[in-house]
């Protein structure tokens, strides 16, 4: 008799436990309907289940760092010392228009978004690229 009560007690504890936990750590299947309202994009709490629809909340520094790393590895950049947050692709880094297209395409891949031609043509500097990425909700 004692043998059967123990597992039952344990099961009871397991099922009742999530009720007292933070909503963020709840199993996703049980409350997926309500989860989107509970997790705010600015939440810094630990998140056990990743919500792919939620905004990744990229920071300015992170975006800039990733773009700069990308340019650092780009073989056409002549003077890496001129690389900073304000660098202009053509004036500072010596890239021609074809190279600029390549850089913008690489940024697309890095943040898994697609930049339409018209907006891609308007990106000529790191600052413009960072601003564009920050304005995209689905960039991550």
């Amino acid at each position: 008799m004692f043998r059967t009560t123990l597992p039952r007690l344990a099961r009871h504890l397991v099922y009742s436990a999530p009720r007292y936990q933070a909503p963020i750590a709840r199993p996703i299947a049980r409350s997926s309907l309500f989860q989107s309202t509970r997790i705010t994009p600015t939440s810094t709490a630990f998140q056990a289940a990743r919500c792919y629809s939620a905004s990744a909340g990229l920071s300015h520094e992170e975006v800039q760092g990733r773009i700069m790393d990308l340019l650092k590895n780009f073989d056409k950049v002549q003077d890496v010392s001129k690389l900073n947050g304000e660098s202009h692709f053509h004036n500072d880094l010596g890239l021609d228009s074809l190279d600029t297209v390549e850089v913008v395409m690489a940024i697309e891949e890095e943040f898994s978004i697609e930049i339409p031609d018209k907006e891609a043509d308007a990106i000529h500097s790191i600052k413009q690229a960072v601003d564009y990425i920050l304005a995209q909700p689905d960039a991550h």
Binding site: S97, L98, V101, E102, M105, D117, A120, D121
Partner: peptide, 13 residues
């Protein structure tokens, strides 16, 4: 020039 860049983009895609 825009046409060339657009073609370049298509090729890279």
């Amino acid at each position: 020039q825009r046409e060339v860049l657009s073609l370049y983009r298509q090729c890279l895609r």
